[in-house]
């Protein structure tokens, strides 16, 4: 959606908008929100599996963007990467605050296709983490790499937890994460340009 009126702010690059946000420009912040809220919300929902929790996470993350815009550094990546990393890290915090042991057990059950359909938030989150991706990228990875990348990024599990869950040496998990992400970087090389 987003048929926003055409203003001078709308024509600014993300980096210029964030520089204005750092000075307290609410109008510039609104443009940043309009550009990135949809993908942020979609990521939050994929991670948490619950609309209300995802809405709360997005609010929290964008207020962090508003209050911490002075910490954005273009040298570390695009505004979209920065915004999504805030959403992702806060989503991980929420996932990890739930019972870790229960999450691991549920993930293992779902990995083995055992158990009833998930109902609780953490069940849905793990289910979502292991679900096939929408289109490009992840589904092109070898299964062993795609699985660990999904568990890490969408499920919020550390490589130590993934190692324990899947009964793999930690080095193997790290190696699969690296190979998988490097392959994604090659296949999604144009993604950064979308921001």
């Amino acid at each position: 959606m987003g048929t926003r009126r055409d203003t001078a702010l709308d024509r600014l690059a993300d980096e210029d908008l964030v520089a204005r946000v750092a000075t307290g420009d609410a109008g510039a912040f609104e443009v940043v929100y309009d550009r990135h809220a949809r993908v942020a919300f979609s990521l939050a929902f994929r991670m948490l599996g619950d609309r209300a929790a995802a809405e709360d996470l997005v609010q929290d993350a964008f207020l962090s963007v508003w209050r911490g815009a002075d910490r954005f550094s273009p040298a570390l990546g695009s505004v979209r990467t920065w915004v999504l990393s805030i959403v992702h890290h806060r989503g991980i915090d929420r996932l990890r605050s739930s019972a870790a042991a229960a999450r691991r057990e549920l993930a293992l059950q779902q990995e083995a296709h055992v158990g009833d359909p998930p109902e609780r938030t953490e069940d849905r989150a793990i289910d979502g983490a292991l679900a096939p991706s929408l289109h490009r990228g992840l589904d092109d990875l070898p299964d062993d790499q795609g699985k660990v990348v999904r568990l890490a990024y969408y499920g919020g599990f550390t490589h130590h937890e993934i190692s324990e869950m899947l009964g793999l040496p930690l080095g193997t998990v790290k190696s699969r994460l690296r190979l998988g992400l490097e392959r994604l970087r090659m296949s999604m090389g144009a993604r950064e340009a979308l921001s």
Binding site: A40, L43, G77, T81, L84, H88, V149, E182, R185, M188
Partner: peptide, 8 residues
């Protein structure tokens, strides 16, 4: 990081 954010 850019590749990871592409997962979103």
């Amino acid at each position: 990081r850019a590749a990871a954010s592409g997962l979103a």
